[in-house]
C-alpha cells in the first residue's frame, strides 16, 4: 500500500518498520499499523485530538510497548532517534548550551562522564545549531527564563545538534508564530536532507503540515491511512 505512494523513490532498508502494530495503553487506540519510514520522508500525522497520535509517536520512540506486533528499528538505539515531545522536554534549570549539548552527547560513548562538558571537537555542532536557530546569544541563560518560542528553538537546536536518523516531533509547528515557523522549518529541513534522515511530526495544524510534509498519515476509526500529498 505504501509502495504505491513512493513510486520512483529508491527502496532501501527502512529506518523504522512497524509490523502489524496495535498502538495504545490498555485498550488499542490504533490497530493494524503496518508502515515503513524511509530516509528522506517527512511525515505528517493528522487526526482529531485524543485519537492516539502522541501514543503512536511514543510507540515509535520506544517509550510505549505496542499491544501487539512489533517495531523494528533500523537506527542506532543511542543517538539514532531525536524526540521533541509536545512539552519540549528541556531541562529548565540548565543553560541553553547544556541542553543543546545533550544532543551532541549521545554521539559519544555512553561511558563518557556526564559531569564533564562535551569534548572541544564536538562543541561545534551545538554552537552551529544555536547559531542556525538564532539563540546563540542566549547560550548561557537558563532555559526556564526563555519565552515559549525561544524554548522551542532550543529544543530544535538540541535535535539538530544530535543529527539523528529519525526525528519525532509532537505538535511542533502549531505553537510557533509565523517567523519562527520559517526559521525552524528551514533549519530542520536542511538538517534532515544533509543527514538523509526522516521526520515524523504530529500536527493538528493541517494546512501547515501538508505544506511541509511529503507523506501524510491520517488516523481515523482506529486505523492509520496513508494519504496522497497534493
Amino acid at each position: 500500500m505504501n509502495d504505491t505512494v513512493r513510486t520512483g523513490l529508491e527502496m532501501s532498508e527502512p529506518l523504522v518498520h512497524l509490523h502489524d502494530v496495535a498502538v495504545g495503553y490498555d485498550q488499542p487506540l490504533i490497530e493494524e499499523v503496518d508502515v515503513e519510514i524511509q530516509a528522506g520522508d517527512v511525515i505528517a500525522v493528522l487526526g482529531p485530538s485524543g485519537i492516539g497520535k502522541t501514543t503512536l509517536l511514543r510507540t515509535i520512540a520506544g517509550l510505549v510497548k505496542p499491544l501487539s506486533g512489533h517495531v523494528e528499528l533500523g537506527v542506532a538505539p543511542r543517538g539514532g532517534v531525536g524526540y521533541i515531545p509536545q512539552r519540549l522536554g528541556l531541562v529548565s534549570n540548565l543553560s541553553v548550551r547544556s541542553n543543546v549539548e545533550m544532543g551532541v552527547r549521545v554521539s559519544l560513548s555512553k561511558w563518557y562522564p556526564p559531569f564533564l562538558g562535551v569534548p572541544k571537537d564536538h562543541q561545534g555542532y551545538a554552537q552551529q545549531a544555536m547559531e542556525d536557530l538564532g539563540i546563540a546569544h542566549l547560550a548561557d541563560h537558563p532555559v526556564r527564563i526563555l519565552s515559549g518560542g525561544q524554548q522551542r528553538r532550543v529544543a530544535t537546536a538540541k535535535t539538530v545538534a544530535q543529527r539523528p536518523k529519525l526525528v519525532l516531533a509532537d505538535e511542533f509547528l502549531g505553537e510557533l508564530d509565523d517567523d519562527n515557523v520559517d526559521v525552524v522549518m528551514r533549519t530542520v529541513r536542511h538538517a534532515i536532507e544533509s543527514q538523509n534522515s526522516a521526520m515524523v511530526m504530529v500536527e493538528h495544524h493541517e494546512e501547515l503540515a501538508t505544506q511541509v510534509a511529503n507523506r501524510i498519515w491520517r488516523i481515523k476509526d482506529h486505523r492509520l491511512v496513508e494519504e496522497l500529498t497534493r
Binding site: R58, A61, G62, L63, A76, P77, R78, G79, G80, V81, G82, Y83, I84, P85, Q86, R87, L88, G89, L90, V91, L94, S98, M102, G103, R105, V106, K110, W111, P114, F115, Q162, P164, L168
Partner: peptide, 20 residues
Amino acid sequence: APLESAKAMGMSRMETAWLV
C-alpha cells in the same frame, strides 16, 4: 517530558540522572 526525551535519544541512566 525531559526524561522521555532523554530515553528516546538513548541517554544512559547516569546521564539522565546527572543531566536531567
